[in-house]
Design a protein around this nucleic acid. Structure first.
Length: 486
RNA sequence: CGGGACGUGGCGCAGCUCGGUAGCGCGCCUGAAUGGGGUUCAGGAGGUCGCGGGUUCGAAUCCCGCCGUCCCGACCA
């Protein structure tokens, strides 16, 4: 039966396609708890690669990892007014422990500001203790009404950075620096180029002074808020009494930031690069970059083919994540489909004919330009070119994603009717003028489901940005980027 | 939480209108052959039909209630 072997085509039903890909590429599995998913070994391996890369970037900029607890006394969460207002509806709360009602309910962290700041307050007395640069890798729980694998689940994995600074300028620089790190990670590792910028008041983090965001475009032309960085000003330090003595001997509240990225990034990876066959992984984040599929008939052939496969694996092993698929239970064609569905960038096929000729068949998961998908190559030649090929594919995926984003971006639009038409059909990023009024944001959202993703950073702004608000026609204060989002 | 669709071996589904004790494909197990794009044959295991109640001699099928999943919305990383 071939019907359940093929995926729903991406262009036919993007949601169905996405769900099928994450399940059939063995990234996730469902559990008895609604909206709470297992990340399977193959999916978790991608997360570990993401973690490794981001963690290195954080440490290179002076951050240290720590771990704060899962449970937060309800009263602490309530200390920052905007924060509790924003998060209270989404929290899970523990009311019993050890068989008794608790005197004070404990909130399962929806984010950790409220437990981190009361504790870090004790670590800071003087300007000499600043900046304090902490990151943690953790799980958090937000009681979402509607969930989707990776994109929105009850529990998810993320990292959250929390920093304290002596001045507003330093905190702002930190928030911007971390946004830049996320952007660079998305471009260099994920091949998922975001538009970056600042969130509007309506869209910012609950309790932040300013929120910055990375917003890559998915293949259905919707935006994914893929990482955020917040300048919290002194809101949290005032709420949690985080004070320090300045060089001049005065007392002041610290200036803080927080910034985070989650397993949602994996969903972004799927929706940015996948196709009708399944997942396509950028080589830098592929748990298996090269899979070797041996092909043989007799046991004599099996021995010589596996020997050659092992030789190739060993010579690639130092610089490439390579796996020999020596399972005897599947025929080669079935393995081809499986590894393509799982997004492995390069496959090497090696059979008796190849062993005899000292060659291998090099097959690419995706082809750019006029390259051949499948080419026979001398064994040592293939080994020598593979690293370069992986780099080429990484670059090709980035270029393709960037090109798609820009092709589906609209600039200089002044007519609201046209705006509505684009949003109701293809969707995409629309750059327009905006008066700064929340009423106009609401109106556009009601009309089109699109929201302001960001007030874009300078390098994303249009030369010919319209000077009137798209919704009300009043003088524009900022160019903004609209899109429907996840 | 509002609107829609759907819950039947691991997965995808048929059977339900017109009640009679469950079937197909894939997968799985055993064996043999096969192996350069989802291989074939033979044999085999596996289901109290989402849960609870009701009607009936008899319920996957009819009735009531509940739970869950997916899609579209509201909320949100």
């Amino acid at each position: 039966m071939s019907s359940d072997r093929k995926l729903t085509p991406l262009g036919e039903d993007f949601s169905a396609w996405y769900n099928e890909v994450v399940l059939r590429a063995e990234l996730v599995d469902y559990t008895p708890v609604k909206g709470s998913l297992v990340i399977r070994p193959y999916g978790y391996a991608i997360w570990e690669l993401i973690q490794g890369a981001l963690d290195g970037m954080f440490k290179a900029t002076g951050h240290e990892n720590a771990y704060f607890p899962l449970l937060i006394p309800e009263s602490l969460l309530a200390k920052e007014a905007e924060h509790i207002e924003g998060f209270a509806p989404q929290t899970a709360v523990v009311t019993r422990g050890g068989g008794k009602e608790l005197e004070e309910p404990l909130v399962i962290r929806p984010t950790s500001e409220a437990i981190i700041w009361p504790i870090m307050a004790g670590w800071i007395q003087s300007y000499r203790d600043l900046p304090l640069l902490i990151n943690q890798w953790a799980n958090i729980v937000r009681w979402e009404l509607r969930t989707r694998p990776f994109l929105r689940t009850l529990e998810f994995l993320w990292q959250e950075g929390h920093t304290a600074h002596a001045t507003q300028e330093e905190a702002e620089a930190e928030a911007r620096q971390m946004l830049g790190i996320y952007r660079r990670f998305m471009e260099d590792w994920m091949a998922m180029p975001p538009v970056t910028g600042r969130k509007t008041e309506r869209e910012k983090f609950a309790g932040a002074d300013r929120t910055y965001s990375c917003e890559p475009m998915m293949q259905d032309n919707r935006a994914l808020q893929a990482a955020t960085s917040h300048n919290l000003g002194q809101k949290f330090s005032r709420a949690f009494e985080v004070k320090f003595q300045t060089e001049a001997g005065e007392h002041d509240y610290v200036w803080s930031t927080s910034w985070g990225a989650s397993t949602r990034l994996i969903g972004g990876l799927v929706m940015t690069h996948g196709d009708d066959v399944g997942l396509i992984l950028p080589p830098k984040l592929a748990p298996i970059q090269v899979v070797v599929v041996p092909i043989y008939k007799s046991s004599a052939e099996r021995a010589s083919v596996l020997e050659a496969a092992e030789r190739i694996r060993a010579s690639l092993d130092r610089n490439v994540r390579v796996k020999v698929d020596d399972r005897d239970t599947l025929n080669p064609g079935a393995k081809f489909y499986e590894w393509e569905r799982k997004g492995v960038p390069v496959r090497l096929e090696i059979g008796p004919r190849d062993v005899a000729a000292g060659q291998v068949m090099v097959v690419r998961r995706i082809v750019f330009g006029d390259a051949e998908r499948k080419v026979a190559m001398g064994e040592s030649e293939a080994i020598a070119m593979l690293e370069g090929l992986l780099e080429t594919m990484q670059a090709g995926l980035h270029e393709r994603a960037l090109d798609r984003r820009e092709r589906n971006s609209y600039r200089g639009l002044k007519d609201y009717g046209e705006f509505k038409q684009i949003m109701s059909q293809s969707g995409g990023y629309i750059y327009t003028g905006w008066c700064g009024g929340e009423e106009c944001e609401s109106k556009v959202k009601d009309d089109t489901k699109a929201t302001i993703r960001v007030i874009p950073d300078p390098e994303f702004r249009s030369d010919d940005a319209p000077d009137k608000c798209i919704a009300c026609g009043a003088e524009s204060t900022n160019e903004v980027v609209w899109a429907r989002a996840y």
